[in-house]
Design a protein around this nucleic acid. Structure first.
Lengths: 286, 286
DNA sequence: TATAATAATGACTAGCCAGTCAGTTGTCAA
DNA sequence: TTGACAACTGACTGGCTAGTCATTATTATA
């Protein structure tokens, strides 16, 4: 029975990377160091393995969420629920990747980047709307608000796909639009605790992050400087910016400056981008 | 060149039903009444067809949304946006089905029903929370609120899947949970225009789930019985299974049997499932 | 040590499918 | 009518994979 567990653990890694379909039984058995026959002693079919994996993880997550909800006081109920869901999800992050792999690698790289591309267009469109409507009143929360709008779009869109063709209900688009307008306005007005910050958005939006131009990095630096109060960190940032425009420090100094800002909450992306510029230390040697 | 269009139109139908991978070029050419060779005169590869389809539809939808936003007054901006998105989506509903097919039929029916099943558990859990927190103040809007919560979960969950392992940002779960709690409370308090009504929810939740659940629970029980050694717990499980197939015990007995297995490590999910069957105590009253 | 039972192996089968290409059919101008 | 060209055909290739099963290795038992 421990072989069964071995297969489940190892195959999960492969599935997470490649998706269910793109992972063959042969690959799994090779990765486990067992033969194909041995696999079929533990599982009747490949599908049985997949089902076992999903059940195992979903059972854990369901129970965890349920326990959190049952033990929480009314005051903490919602908090406990949300916290637990995301905590579980992160803990079993392989699982998330597995699900997404299934979406993504279903066809190929090209499809993935196409989807990113159109997602990006939508992001921009929503941001334009938000900025136009609420101006700089929601400067702090606008990215978060955009995520909410996207959340709504995603979820309510599913209602339009009745895979069971059974009841042919014509959905009331007017009501739907009014309902979501109301929600959006309410959130814009009353929500003051954003989760998706400008920073976070920058990190997560663009998978082709490596291609960020020098100019974009500088812009990002300037945006962050404005938000920071005078400090060693801010000065380090200023110096790094100057250095990026016109190299003048030795690698040791540059490295030190980066260390200064490494743990500042707003600078994570900047540090990341700088360190991932292949030429960063070598090119600025003088 | 009109052959190209023919292939695009016809293949879309097939893709929407079966997903990209489960639709072979042979099927497409048969459905179009042309030969395989003719297909490859219009498209270099199958993938080129898929990309052409996605581009064609996404361009239309993007342009439609963009035009709606550009021509709307500030007052109608959000409304126009939401309305247009869903309208486009419905108009090109084949496309939606196509995308979902890709998610769903990626492996098989079994996986699909499993996902539905766990989705349903989540729905119930969220409803429980909402009812407990806001009582009958939100009777009219509770299903809609549940959809919002699910929206948030879906969207924000994506942040946990950095397919690009690049910047290792540890997401702040506490902030995330607080942010979503705030949003949920705000919506519960101020949103009075629900879209998802009780009826709509009934229609759209998977109708087969009632049977599914029962069958799944029984299977789950059987699996667990095999693993257990003879004991009060095992006997209780056997009796509960019989009762589930054909009700014969009074609620008191059922409750007692459940208590017997409540703390057995393998039975937690079963207990949870049984207690969440709405009809569990009432239906078996005699 | 001998024998039986169990675990494990991997070559093999049968099936699917994207993409190819030698050959056929249709068209149209000379 | 003929010949040239384009459009079209579908049998075929090569590559991949889930699942099988005769055979071999290992372990337990007597």
């Amino acid at each position: 029975m421990e072989k069964r567990q071995l297969i489940m653990d190892k195959s999960m890694e492969l599935f997470a990377e490649q998706g269910f379909r793109n992972t063959s039984v042969q690959q799994i058995t090779d990765y486990c160091g067992i033969s194909k026959g041995a696999f079929y002693l533990s599982f009747k079919t490949k599908n049985e393995l997949i089902m076992a994996l999903i059940d195992s993880l979903m059972e854990k997550m369901t129970l965890e969420a349920d326990r959190a909800v049952k033990t929480a006081s009314d005051k903490d109920l919602l908090y406990a629920f949300y916290y637990q869901i995301f905590h579980s999800f992160r803990k079993h992050s392989v699982f998330g990747k597995l699900i997404v792999s299934e979406h993504m690698q279903s066809i190929n790289e090209e499809l993935v980047s196409k989807i990113y591309y159109y997602q990006n267009l939508l992001d921009k469109l929503i941001l334009t709307i938000i900025e136009r409507l609420y101006g700089n009143k929601i400067e702090k929360t606008k990215y978060d608000l955009m995520y909410c709008v996207k959340s709504f779009l995603g979820m309510y869109t599913e209602l339009f796909i009745s895979n069971n063709e059974l009841p042919d209900v014509e959905l009331d688009l007017d009501l739907l639009a009014r309902s979501l307008v109301e929600k959006t306005n309410i959130l814009a007005k009353h929500a003051f605790t954003p989760f998706v910050s400008h920073e976070l958005f920058q990190i997560y939006k663009n998978p082709t992050i490596g291609d960020m131009t020098q100019q974009q990095i500088i812009t990002l630096m300037e945006e962050n400087m404005e938000k920071m109060e005078d400090s060693i960190e801010k000065d380090s940032l200023i110096l790094l910016k100057q250095h990026l425009i016109e190299p003048k420090f030795s690698p040791a100094i540059v490295k030190g400056l980066i260390e200064n800002i490494r743990h500042h909450p707003n600078c994570k992306l900047i540090v990341y981008l700088l360190e991932n510029r292949g030429d960063f230390y070598s090119a600025y040697r003088y």
